[in-house]
Write a protein that binds this DNA or RNA. Sequence first.
RNA 1: GCGAGGGUUGCCCAGUUGGUCAAAGGCGCCAGACUUAAGAUCUGGUAUCGAAGGAUUUCGUGGGUUCAAAUCCCACCCCUCGCACCA
Length: 962
Amino acid sequence: MEQDYIPCEIEQKWQKIWDDTKVFQPEPDEREKFFITIPYPYLNGNLHAGHTRTFTIGDVIARYKRMQGYNVLFPMGFHVTGTPIVGLAELIANRDPQTMKVYSELHGIPIDILDTLVTPERIVEYFSKEAEKDMRSIGYSIDWRRKFTTTDPTYKKFIEWQFNLLYEKGLIVKGSHPVKWCPNDNNPVEDHDILHGEEATIVDYTLIKFEYNGIILPCATLRPETIFGVTNLWINPDIEHVKIKVEKNGKKEEWIVSREAYNKLTFTDRKIEFIENVPAASLIGIKVKNPLTGNYVITLPASFVKGENGSGIVMSVPAHAPFDYLALKDLYGQDLSNYGIKEDLRNIKLISLIEAKEFGEYPAVEAVQQLGVKDQNDPKAEEATKIVYRREFHGGVLKENTGKYAGMAVSKIKEVLTKDLINQGIGEVFYEFSEPVVCRCGTPCVVNMVEGQWFLNYSNPEWKDKVYRCIEKMDIIPEEYRVEFNNKVDWLKDKACARKKGLGTHLPFDNQWLIESLGDSTIYMTYYITNKFFARGIGPEHLTPKLFDYVLLGKGSLQKTAADTGLDEELIAQMKKDMDYWYPVDLRSSGKDLVPNHLLFFLFHHVAIFEEDKWPRSIAVNGFVSLEGQKMSKSKGPLLTLRTAVNKYGADISRLYILSSAEQTQDADWRNSGVEAAKKQVERFYSFAREIIEAGAVCGMCGELKLIDKWMLSRLQQRIRETNKDMLALRTRSALQNAFYLLLNDIKWYQKRGGSNLLYDILDTWVRLMAPFIPHVCEEIWHAMGHRGDDIVSLAPYPIFNPELIDKNAELAEELVDNTLEDIEEIIKVTKMTPKKVVLYTSPTWKKRIFQTALKMQSENELNGGVLIKKLMSDPANRTYGKDIPKFVQKIVSDINSMKMERLEMFAGYELDELEILRENKIFFEKEFGCPVEIYSADDPSYDPENKSKFAVPMRPAIYIE
RNA sequence: GCGAGGGUUGCCCAGUUGGUCAAAGGCGCCAGACUUAAGAUCUGGUAUCGAAGGAUUUCGUGGGUUCAAAUCCCACCCCUCGCACCA
């Protein structure tokens, strides 16, 4: 080994050896397989610290499983379908200043090359090469024979096959959906096209059609159930209203709405025709029919109604809506005769329809009174509304007067009721933004219905049921995410799966559309298996649907498939054999951002296409990476690329750092000071190994073992046990704590206590323990230890826990020494004295006996202070210490009571000769404190000037210092 | 608003089947060793009080359960992320 640790030399050397010897190119054999996949990266930039984290976790698992004896397949591909790469090519072609800056400086692309990346194809070619180079440089154990890019002609054949299959199964349907739309550009707006209102979401209101002389006055509401409590409608006399002709699904109606609402309606899936302006005054004071109850209610003037919200006409539910109540109250006693309203509005009776435990009959009235809201223009009215809505939504139940809906929870009613209203022709859905959205061009956006769109029918309940079943059977790591997955399945609606722009595969049954990029990356893990064969030169012309049917699903016959594809039977049989061997996916590990999209679709498509035995077995998710506390951004910075990290620190240090800096789901923060610390640790590991090897250390297990050796072995076993336990749960941080940091502390103590026999054995285990995490330096050490040829550490057996090497007495003995050491130090610190002599007194025999007796009683589950004291007192031999016994017993009993199981097991059969142990370590103590040390038993102290020996108890000797 | 996650000692971050938890590890800081010196490295210390191994107050806030709470229960406050046709 070299004197100094030089990462890049070691790393390049071993990467070449791994590649040359093809150790990570698995083929089916008799071993158990483990198929791990990480979502391939989307290549609109170089790989960054986020990728580094996710992929490194995957690689560590792959390496760990391999060392455990599994036949591990860990493949990788590149995702390029979709629009961002097309957009990036345009930006580069246009020399967009920010893009040029970010991609040259942060992504590290030489400017002369960047200048050439002006088409999507060139971008894909460039980044896929770079990404592979990067992943190799950090030592991922990927089988590169299987790589592909999602625009490969053969991959497109695979996607076409899949979408035809889904179409045949009726899982792809045609429909319309609402999008954010700029009327000026006549195009959908994406998030980066928005000037303000990025936060806006599309909210679905229910439109309820009140009727007046055959004309519809639609009211938009988020709470359609309140239709049962409507006492009147609100019309703002100061805004413009229009009468329009509305045609939807062939049904023609005449509506009256605000002018703004008319404008919005023209973008919906309705045909709209303007008829005439309608003076607001003519709309006030009329009687309109509640379409559900058939009751007639009056229309009244209100200033709080805004033309741009909803339809511009509002239904009034004063029992539950503070604004409605306030507006109504404001009209009490007012002269409304100019609207032709003569009746006394006090006669309008509030209608309560929701039972909520926080409120009585009229929640709106109570809230208004509690908050002291003055009128409809008081800002506190908003707050009152929120309070009432929130409480009613959570805990509210519908009352008897809602007919067949009585007893239903308010939180569940909206969907059901809206559907019923639509079916009866008296309701519709109306989409609106949660806040105003303005396009970059300055135009206010609208919700537009895109028609004739293709959807993946994820809302299909049978499909969802299968996914639930799949999740139930899977391991979700960490387990807390299971509920998240189930929630998201529940929440998922139909998803538009085709677009007009971007890279990708055309929909086979409707060629003008491109398959959306999340849809084409759901079951591609099978493609790694088949692509090993395709990549040897099988062209797309051979990849007929029958081939995929046979290889992936086992449908059809070998002969017919061969005839259909023109491929050899033997080759096809081999593909199928590989598929049957490797599938299903044992673990898909990914960043947590993919939970509500990719990982969900991954499950949906698997359950739709494959039989249950091919469903994924487990999913793991990990957190993000930030940079010195700042969020990273590919397009704006800050950004740390994988390459920058590896160039600066090396592969092993980057790996160790990213894995140890945060636990699985926690977000990690990449900090320079942290990497520097990791660097120090790896260097320390390296020089520890070098010193041992250069000293010519050999296996010490066969020689005679001292107590400290037994202690070391015992601790080592515990670290092995914990590391394996952590790896099983993918807790890489905790695994490293055990396999590296804690073990390092143990080794320090071992050496401090004069241990030396087992250094070679420790190293042998330690290198294997660390190999999945920092493989290059471990290979280097393993080689230096004399392993040659095929005997590389990447394929060496991972250490397993050996319970026979656990030695409780050795651990207790060291604990005694450590306790004593710390107590002496503490006394010196407090008294600030320089010791001239230290005297130790071990526990007297009677205390040890009592301790043992108490432990025994505890193990028989009958530890009781009183009983113990009586028992002791009855023994004449104990009379001498009679008055000390109760106090000591009390202490012992409470100590033992507060011990955990593990601790009690540790003490089970406690039989330590403390005097002997301390005497053996006399020289150690003398060295530590630089003065003579005398050791006595408290039974028989020949020197005890201050009578300290009486404080001696088991595991804590009494101390006298002068 | 809905859903999920989180608030720990100067900072980052462990620890939640309740009990060696004043609480791991790292950073920072302090002291010592080494060095001509600095750096690097190594050793020790780092809540408060204490001239004897102890005591006291801490784990977002306020209550509660328990012999015992960072850990369990209730309420509240604050922070981060997702909410879709975008990868």
